[in-house]
Design a protein around this nucleic acid. Structure first.
Lengths: 231, 231
DNA sequence: GCCTAAAATTAGGTATAGCTAAATTGAGTA
DNA sequence: TACTCAATTTAGCTATACCTAATTTTAGGC
């Protein structure tokens, strides 16, 4: 006799651990340290150790964990992480395109809702949106089967030679910053002229044909991915 | 340093208690027994006592609770309950009208999501739907200010004389049943000829101009509200 | 007024997911 | 090799929200 509303088992925390391991592990899926996870999740390192031990001890473990050598997702864990990322990015796209959210508000709402929507909800919003592959921040949306397209972009922060680029994606984690970027026209798909300015400790950029120049700090440049123009 | 995803305080259980007290108290807002609450929430009576004591002891209590004499919502509790009901019914309407959900699936999804949507989400779906006042099951949607329209309907189960009625609302709690009702055309707004049949221990009904007769049990009739046709 | 049964409460226990503080481990340096 | 220190783990604690079993209270019948 357990309350109706807990019947699905609450996977919120677990999902957040999996997502964090997924992001921190990068595409190379290297082992992630307890410290890095603790920082990303805003919990104490001891809490992370605890949770990972529990996850690793389950009959169908979502993580591969070895004492003192960090943690990695198992195949099942990666599948679940990609599902949550798909939920997150579909919801962001939906909020932006169907419910006309301001761009800087979609992340927070998606961060909450991603854990609670059903398969049906996922399928319906995907259909409504025409099965999108890119979210409003320019990030790839994993498919229902758990495949995520990889694109050959680089970090703006890694640019060494001045040139023209197309913005692939921006970070969704800092709403304040996102609002500023959007106001400057720094949005996925925009064409951007970049010049590295040593004096400024950052980058000067011009968007499209505008003559306005914006200064971007190195920190912000770490959150922007760009590609060479196709033509 | 508490994890981001718990920052709002988890009000899921509390919301469910408030909603249950709201429904069981009825429009007269009478005191609700611990036993009734426990049954509705599928938890042990001891758990209800516990929760109510905690809720009543808070500096701004959501309930008025006295040992051995049941519980009632405070003004603040009623406000919150109506907000959750508004969320629930707006979400149901949204799922049905915008995302083309089958009618019998909207309740379960709304039951989960109602606790986690933001004010912005509420406002946006309401706008998208043209600020609806009735949900797909025929229930009134409370306003943003916490007012809920009351209509002069009666339970089908209270019908003593045969006659023609318009269906106001059906229950959303039993998906199976809801699917059957819909298949019979027993949906809000439909015109229904009712005859009480003693032999059947229930009602025989015909919908619109159809000649098909359906038998409804007394139990089902407890979940259908009807009104006299306006003309 | 007393007795009984149902309802409510109390007492004590579980699991989850956090926490701090103390102990341990291991990786790089002297 | 041994030392040091940061990272990790362990131990033991907290709060929430549930549970069962035992106790208390209340309300209705006699």
């Amino acid at each position: 006799m357990s309350p109706r509303w807990r019947s699905n088992g609450n996977t919120e925390s677990v999902d957040n651990y999996l997502k964090a391991i997924f992001y921190l592990g990068g595409l190379e899926e290297c082992r992630v340290s307890i410290k890095a996870l603790a920082e990303r999740l805003c919990v104490a390192p001891a809490s992370v150790t605890n949770m990972l031990q529990k996850l690793a001890a389950s009959p169908a473990p979502l993580v591969e964990y070895e004492r003192h050598r960090g943690v990695q997702l198992s195949a099942a864990g990666k599948r679940r992480a990609l599902e949550v990322v798909r939920h997150h990015r579909l919801i962001e796209t939906f909020l932006y395109r169907v419910l006309d959210y301001p761009i800087e508000e979609v992340h927070e709402e998606a961060e909450r809702l991603e854990h609670f929507i059903s398969e049906r909800f996922e399928e319906r919003i995907a259909a409504k949106l025409g099965h999108p592959t890119i979210d409003p921040h320019g990030h790839s949306i994993p498919t229902m089967e758990g495949k995520m397209a990889t694109r050959e972009s680089i970090l703006l922060a890694d640019v060494v030679e001045d040139g023209t680029f197309v913005i692939e994606s921006v970070s969704d984690r800092d709403a304040q910053n996102l609002r500023l970027l959007e106001a400057c026209g720094i949005v996925p798909g925009a064409r951007m002229q970049v010049s590295k300015s040593a004096s400024l400790e950052g980058y000067s950029v011009r968007i499209g044909r505008s003559s306005k120049v914006f200064a971007l700090s190195c920190e912000v440049a770490l959150d922007i991915r760009i590609v060479r123009p196709t033509k």
